[in-house]
Nucleic acid binder design. Structure first.
Lengths: 161, 161
DNA sequence: CCATTTTTATTGAAACTTCAAGAAGTGCAC
DNA sequence: GTGCACTTCTTGAAGTTTCAATAAAAATGG
C-alpha cells in the first residue's frame, strides 16, 4: 500500500470524469442493446466474440478469459442465451470436464442483425467525438490499465485469498 | 444513424482495450470495497459524495444526478445503506414529495476508515501507471464522452421512449 | 380555482451478478 | 496405479439493477 493517501487535484478530476463517462456509457449501451437485441451488453459481447471465432465456438474457460468475466457469470449467461436459442453447449471431446459453446445459426443471424446498431451507438458515443490522436491515447491508456489488473475468478482459486 | 457501419482497425482495437480495462477495473474496485467496506463501488461513491457535501446531506434527485444513476436504483441503494446505519432519510421541508438523504456519523466514520484503501486501489490501478500527460488526456477524453450522453432514468420520462 | 401535466420518490418482480460450495474429470508425484 | 492437488464447470442463494407501475405533491395553464 502506497504511503501517499490522497490523489492530486488533477487525478481527482480525471477519476471523477472517468467514472461518470464509464457509468453513463455502460448504461447507454446496455439500454441500446436491451431495446434492439433483447440482451445486455455483456451477453452481446459473448455472441459477438463467438461470431469471429473459427467454428464459431469456444471452450467455456477460454470465452470467460476473453470476456474478462468469471466462469460462474459465464455459466449463467450461457444458460440464458441457450434458452434463447442463440447458442448451445457441446461436450468437449478432448477433456470430459469441458464444454464447448457454439453459436447457433440463429445466434449468428442475431449478431448480424444487431451489430450495425450497436457499432453505431459505440461510434457516435465515442469515436465521432474523439480525434484520431485521442483515440490512440485512449487505446494506449486502456492497455496500460488492463495490464495491471489480473482477471477475476479468485472464487475458483481459494488459496489466493 | 451514421451510414458508415463499421469501425476502423484502430477504433476496434481501442474499443476492445477500453472494454477490457473498464470491465477489469470495475470488478477490481468492487471486490476491493466489498472486502474492505462491505459494499459495492457505487454504494461507496454515494457515501463519499455525501461526505463532501455541506450538511453531509442531499436531495434524492440531486444525489442520483451526481452519481449518474436512476432514482429507482438510488432508492434501493439508500434503503440498503440505511439498513446498515450509514445514512438516513429525512423528509424535505420545502417540498413534501422530497426526501433528504443524510450521512450518519457512523457512515462518515466508515468513509474515513475505508477511503485510504480505496484511494490506494484507484491510484495503483490507474495513476501510478499513467504519466501526467496521460492523466490529463484521460480526463479530457472522459469529459468528451460523458458530455455526449444524457443521464438515464428514461423510465420516469415515458413520453421519451 | 380546477384540471391536467409533470416531478419526486418508492415498490415488487424479473433479470443479472457474486459468492460459496460442490460434482466430476485431469494430471502429477510417488 | 493410487492418492492428492488442481481444473472445469455448474448450482442455488443472496445481493444488486432494471423495468413498469404507482402514489403523492407540485407546477402549469386555462
Amino acid at each position: 500500500m502506497n504511503t501517499m493517501t490522497w490523489l492530486t487535484e488533477d487525478q481527482q478530476a480525471t477519476w471523477r470524469a472517468f467514472l461518470h463517462a464509464t457509468t453513463l456509457l455502460e448504461d447507454h449501451l446496455d439500454r441500446q442493446l436491451q431495446r434492439d437485441a433483447g440482451m445486455p451488453h455483456m451477453y452481446y459481447a459473448l455472441l459477438s466474440t463467438l461470431s469471429e471465432t473459427p467454428g464459431r465456438s469456444m471452450r467455456m474457460t477460454e470465452l470467460a478469459e476473453r470476456a474478462k468475466i468469471t466462469r460462474s457469470r459465464l455459466s449463467h449467461a450461457v444458460a440464458r442465451l441457450e434458452g434463447n436459442g442463440w447458442l448451445r453447449r457441446e461436450s468437449c471431446p478432448s477433456d470430459r470436464r469441458g464444454q464447448v459453446v457454439v453459436l447457433t445459426d440463429a445466434g449468428y443471424d442475431e449478431v448480424v442483425r444487431t451489430a450495425p446498431g450497436h457499432v453505431d451507438a459505440v461510434r457516435s458515443a465515442i469515436f465521432d467525438r474523439l480525434t484520431p490522436e485521442q483515440t490512440a491515447q485512449l487505446g494506449e491508456i486502456s492497455r496500460i490499465i488492463a495490464e495491471g489488473l489480473h482477471r477475476p475468478d479468485r472464487a475458483d482459486l481459494p488459496w489466493l485469498r
